[in-house]
Write a protein that binds this DNA or RNA. Structure first.
Lengths: 226, 226
DNA sequence: CCCTTTTGGTCCACTTTGGAAAAAAATTGA
DNA sequence: TCAATTTTTTTCCAAAGTGGACCAAAAGGG
């Protein structure tokens, strides 16, 4: 994604320099961190630049303004996330639906640990009606949701996933993974859960599967794959 | 709680006036809303005063400073919440453990709908290590957690709650209710879930019970109550 | 009707805000 | 090598916002 200039849509007469890419990436990382901690309003561009170790006018240069920077940061987080999901799906495409969904959940948990902003940003933006929220939903959430949604419905029909409104089911799974990991600092102090321990991550995804997908896959009929 | 002056610990020579109580309450409501939307850092006292429809120096008068106001607001939200929980527990004290836990979950969902700040504030404060977070955990979270925690362990022994780390179990329940409702604005647009519909709330708490407490209570032996 | 509590209005000293502008430096491609 | 271009540095701005102090006016209590 950051291969070509983020801003200039005119044909670049000369190719982008390496240091520019580095700067953009530093700014994106810093932006993700800052926005997820303090929300859009609560974050200043200077704060972001400082975290990135970069002079603040570079934000204007690379991303035009605060709003565009936010969008670029969201694209970065959710784009990478979507990629992880579809990689997992690809890797397990030969497996049965339950294993595929388990792989998705496991990927979700791992990603949410590495990038808690995934959930924090949602909570921040969902706080009040908001153009950024709408943009985020249309651009990133819906595509993920509809796919996962369909998989869950099928699992319900197979008697693997618990019955009930699949939309609710999906969002509960989502919160039990992403939402849980977003509370990192709190969980250790309040419940003794250490999300830095890799065992904990496994425990989490296994529990999610056990709870939300309690059924066994019916014996596979040799003709029908999915 | 707001019966006596929030600030002055000296004996009040004269009792607090009614309008003062009203002002404090307006400020508390506004503070909860603002803090949950924009976090501590992202919220200005002037913003709070404006939402409350009150002149901003009144914050200094009633709560001394921004930090004290935040704590008073947290006390208000979590105090009321704890009260709701123990009322529910009280109301169902004759019932079996599963019904009691179901009542707790239902109360949680209802409260989280009325006061989404319950979860939002946690996400905000858990974003980075933080004195307010520690204060909140010690003062409000731990008491609730230890009680609920014990109930869950018992339900696991009875084969009602799903097995596994009870701390994880507890937090997943917590996120499937409070965390879910904190996303209100998003859920409608992304998944078609309308949390303003009372039916939805019932659906949520019922699904949580079905998922996390799938077992039936064993036939009650006449001698042992709990 | 006096005295306390509460509020309104004003002021302050200071920081922070997002962004503009232009000069300087680094890199590219020929 | 060197001119054109990209990227960074430095400086500046006007505006708004910051938490909080202060005091006179108003309201309410006893």
């Amino acid at each position: 994604m950051p291969d070509e200039p983020t801003l200039h849509n005119q044909p670049p007469a000369r190719k982008q320099q390496q240091r520019s890419i580095v700067t953009q990436q530093k700014l994106l990382d810093a932006a993700v961190e800052a926005f997820s901690e303090n929300g859009f309003k609560g974050t200043s561009t200077r704060d972001i630049a400082e975290r990135a170790g970069v002079h603040h006018p570079l934000i204007t240069y690379h991303f035009k303004n605060k709003d565009q920077l936010w969008r670029a940061a969201a694209d970065y987080v959710f784009g990478t996330f979507t990629e992880s999901l579809s990689n997992a799906l690809d890797e397990y495409k030969e497996q049965d639906p339950k294993q595929r969904m388990s792989a998705l959940i496991h990927t979700y948990v791992k990603y949410a640990r590495a990038q808690p902003a995934l959930h924090k940003v949602m909570v921040q933006e969902a706080s009040y009606p908001n153009a950024r929220l709408d943009w985020l939903i249309e651009r990133h959430l819906k595509p993920i949701f509809t796919v996962t949604f369909g998989m869950l419905e099928k699992l319900q029909q197979l008697g693997v996933a618990v019955p009930g409104n699949p939309a609710l089911l999906f969002n509960m799974i989502r919160l039990s993974s992403g939402g849980l990991l977003a509370l990192g600092n709190e969980l250790k102090a309040s419940s003794g859960i250490d999300i830095d321990d890799p065992k904990t991550l496994n425990e989490i995804s296994e529990m999610i599967v056990r709870v939300f997908l309690p059924g066994k896959m019916p014996a596979r009929r040799p003709d029908s794959a999915n």
